Amino acid sequence: MATEHRDAWHKNSYSSAGENCVEVREHAAGADVRDTQNRDTGHLSMPATEWAAFLLAVKAAAL
């Protein structure tokens, strides 16, 4: 079953014009992440629980 993606890809507001940027597409089932410089190479998908845990770890400066 395909997941409907509600939002378009977007970069984090902390991303600069540098080379190390990623884009995120959040949706009800979780999120997809891809390399801005290599969009055609695919993306990583994660369920909502893993995405939430990742965001908490980043906010806590654990990553």
Rank of each mutant, 00 (worst) to 15 (best):
M1Y: 10
A2M: 12
A2L: 10
T3C: 13
T3N: 15
T3P: 14
T3Q: 15
E4K: 13
H5D: 10
H5S: 12
H5E: 09
R6A: 15
R6D: 15
D7T: 13
D7R: 15
D7Y: 15
D7V: 12
A8V: 08
A8R: 11
W9L: 07
W9N: 05
W9S: 05
H10V: 11
H10D: 11
H10A: 13
K11S: 13
N12C: 15
S13H: 10
S13M: 10
Y14E: 01
Y14M: 04
Y14Q: 05
A17V: 14
A17W: 11
A17P: 12
G18I: 04
N20I: 02
N20K: 10
N20D: 09
N20L: 07
N20E: 08
C21L: 01
C21Q: 01
V22K: 00
V22Y: 02
V22G: 02
E23M: 01
R25K: 13
E26S: 14
H27V: 08
A28I: 06
A29S: 14
G30D: 05
G30P: 02
G30Y: 05
G30A: 08
A31E: 06
A31R: 06
D32N: 05
D32F: 02
D32I: 03
V33L: 07
V33M: 07
R34F: 04
R34W: 01
T36Q: 09
Q37W: 11
Q37C: 14
Q37M: 09
Q37G: 13
N38S: 12
R39N: 04
R39V: 06
R39H: 04
R39A: 07
D40F: 08
D40E: 12
D40P: 09
D40T: 14
T41F: 14
G42K: 02
H43R: 08
H43T: 07
H43W: 08
L44H: 04
S45E: 13
S45M: 09
S45C: 09
P47Q: 04
A48G: 09
A48V: 09
T49A: 12
T49H: 08
T49P: 09
E50C: 07
W51P: 03
W51Q: 02
A52R: 05
A53G: 02
A53Y: 00
F54P: 01
F54Y: 03
L55H: 06
L55Y: 04
L55C: 11
L56Y: 05
A57Q: 03
A57L: 06
A57D: 07
K59W: 00
A60V: 00
A60L: 03
A60C: 01
A61Y: 08
A61N: 15
A61C: 10
A61T: 08
A62R: 13
A62L: 13
A62S: 14
A62V: 11
